[in-house]
Every structure is written in structure tokens, then in C-alpha cells.
């Protein structure tokens, strides 16, 4: 799946691709250097043979607890081609100290909200994003909750919650064990 597209990318921008591999389910991945991301995405979108015009989604992975965790974050992109009918899977690795990468929002309007989501939950900044605000959480929220070092039960209510005895919300051990 999408091997052809990634071959084209590798041929076009040899120094952009850091790594290529195929996952367990047969999906082909390319790890792209952050600086090259807009060029690679523009090529995938505008090349008439590839035509990856549909912005599927984007998200990030905090690799803090994984064996291989440097750099800490991986931002993943899924683009879809309506002529080739396949996804292309891109990955960009971002370090914690410089959690920043170029935005795809000027290229794909669909990237706008997904990048806001990644900023909201992982604290990765997108340079060139027109309106990088939090999307699901409120602006007063401290920290980025999908980072692995954000505690599961670290609640930050805007309005103080009433203490309810004997009710523990959410998954995990309820702080007892």
C-alpha cells in the first residue's frame, strides 16, 4: 500500500526521507525530516499521478515509555488519494526541546483543526498555522494531557467540582492501589 507514492517521494527528495518501513498490517511508512514536510506534502498533493488531496488526519505519539524514545514525539499524517485509493502514511519526529514543525494548514485546510488538536494535547507547535489555539480544552488549561507524563487523574476543572464520596471517575486504580 502506497509503496509507489513513497518511492516517488524518495526519488524526488532523497534527503527528505529519513527512514522507510512497512508495519505489521502491510502499511508503508516514511519518516520525513521536519523541514521537508511541506515540500513532500505539496508534491504528494499536486503530482497528477499521486493526487493525495484528501487530508485524512494527523496526530502525535509521545514515545516517552517506548524503548526508542529519542526524539520524544512522532507526528503522524494520513493522506488519501481518491484516484489511487490508498493512504500514504507519513511520520515526522520532533524533539521535546524543539517541539515545533512547519504547518500543513496553508496546503490542506483540513490540517487546520488536526494541528490544533496536536498542539492542544501534545504541545507541539506548528509554525505558519493561521490560528493555533487549543481546540477541545480551554485556554486556561495547564499542560498537555496526552503526554505520557501527564497524570491520568490530574483534573483541572474550570469550576470546582463537588466532592462526591465513593465515586471514582475514569479508568485506572482510583488512586487506592
Amino acid at each position: 500500500m502506497s509503496i509507489f507514492a513513497l518511492d516517488r517521494v524518495t526519488a524526488q527528495f532523497p534527503e527528505a526521507v529519513a527512514e522507510r518501513y512497512v508495519d505489521r498490517a502491510g502499511g508503508a511508512w516514511a519518516v520525513i525530516h521536519a523541514d521537508w514536510l511541506p515540500k513532500v506534502a505539496a508534491f504528494l498533493k499536486n503530482d497528477p499521478e499521486l493526487n493525495f488531496k484528501l487530508f485524512g488526519s494527523a496526530d502525535a505519539v509521545d514515545r516517552l515509555h517506548l524503548a526508542e524514545n529519542d526524539p520524544r514525539f512522532e507526528v503522524v499524517y494520513f493522506l488519501y488519494s481518491l484516484t489511487r485509493h490508498e493512504h500514504v502514511r507519513l511520520k515526522v519526529r520532533v524533539s521535546e526541546s524543539k517541539a515545533e514543525l512547519p504547518s500543513l494548514a496553508p496546503l490542506y485546510r483540513g490540517a487546520d483543526w488536526w494541528e490544533r488538536f496536536v498542539w492542544d494535547f501534545y504541545g507541539i507547535r506548528f509554525t505558519g498555522h493561521p490560528d493555533l489555539r487549543r481546540i477541545l480544552l480551554y485556554e486556561e488549561f495547564q499542560g498537555h494531557p496526552l503526554r505520557k507524563d501527564y497524570a491520568l487523574r490530574d483534573r483541572q476543572p474550570l469550576i470546582p467540582e463537588r466532592p462526591i464520596k465513593d465515586i471514582f471517575r475514569g479508568p485506572g486504580t482510583s488512586g487506592i492501589a
Binding site: K53, L54, G110
Partner: peptide, 10 residues
Amino acid sequence: ADDAIDYGWT
């Protein structure tokens, strides 16, 4: 259609 695709509609 072009705008819808660009926004990632399905």
C-alpha cells in the same frame, strides 16, 4: 467537491 476533499470530508 474540491473544497470538501481539501477539508478531508468523507
